[in-house]
Amino acid sequence: MKFFYQDWHFESELPLTVISQNNISYHSHCHPEVELIYVESGSIWIGVNEEKQLVREGGFVVCGSNDIHYFEHDKGKDSRVLILIFKPELLGSLRIWPGDFQFATPYLSQSAETAYLVDLMYSILQENKDTQTGYTMVIKGLLLQLCGSLPRYIPTLPKDKEPHEQRARMQKILSYIENNCCSEITLESIARHFNMDPHHFSRTFKSTLGFNFKTYLNTVRISLAEIKLESTELSITDIAMECGFTSIRTFNRVYKSLKGRPPSHLRKGD
């Protein structure tokens, strides 16, 4: 499975996709593609690297290449987001974007500037849907306008080496959790693996991701279990054990606490 470091496969001629989704909830992950998010309605918690913010209708969020980010449903409230994901190569010969600077914050509140950015996003969506003659060049031009405008509206800073190194270490930690989530992992064992004091590991993990270690581990396990529930004939008990849970009772409790309903809703025959 590859939850954490997503490998996007694009269906159109361009390495780009536009998604509109209701009540999205997705745990921490990263990818080399740029991800731009616009909250069309409602409100949603969006974390980017060390920051987390409740983004309300009209808000705009920038996730550069390899930024760790996640979506958390604002409980009791509906939301709809428009997400544009594309490879940095569409901006030129860049391997990552932004390359020589970083944004002071990934968040931009509703304003005339966000309205302009969102108009560009909707234009890209329409061009990608219509695929009229020359649409690939038009989309590239719109993307350049969009990303060229962002540093005008959001303050920028020089690339900071230390946070970059901390982020790289957190990416390794998340990859380790993903690859070993079905085995027994404890806070102490993973801290030891990365030569960190458990208390420091716990504080760093939560301040970076907005979740404590146990919640994140359970989220990854439940995500894997959902795939198995929908794509295999295995029993719920077998799936629970395969995904690292010690009992079906624990699995049911954790699943319901994260998803709000029992895992059996994915198995109508069970």
Rank of each mutant, 00 (worst) to 15 (best):
L142W: 00
W97L: 07
L187E: 14
P151F: 07
Y107D: 11
A168W: 02
H164Q: 15
K159G: 07
N180L: 00
I173P: 06
L142D: 07
S189P: 05
I185W: 02
K228T: 12
C181A: 14
F205A: 05
E178M: 06
L125C: 03
C181E: 11
P163F: 04
R152P: 01
M196R: 09
D130V: 03
Y135K: 01
R167D: 05
P151C: 08
E230Y: 12
R192M: 05
A112W: 04
S111K: 04
N179E: 15
R167M: 07
V118C: 06
R167A: 05
S207K: 11
Y153V: 10
P158G: 10
E230W: 08
E184A: 08
L217E: 12
Y135N: 02
A112F: 09
Q110N: 12
P98C: 05
M137Y: 02
P106W: 01
M137S: 09
L143T: 11
T232W: 13
A168P: 04
T204C: 13
F213Q: 09
S189N: 09
Y122C: 02
I222L: 13
S189I: 05
A225H: 06
P155L: 08
C147E: 11
L209W: 03
H164W: 12
L143F: 00
G210W: 04
K140F: 00
I190A: 06
S207Y: 03
P155R: 04
E188A: 13
L108A: 06
D197E: 14
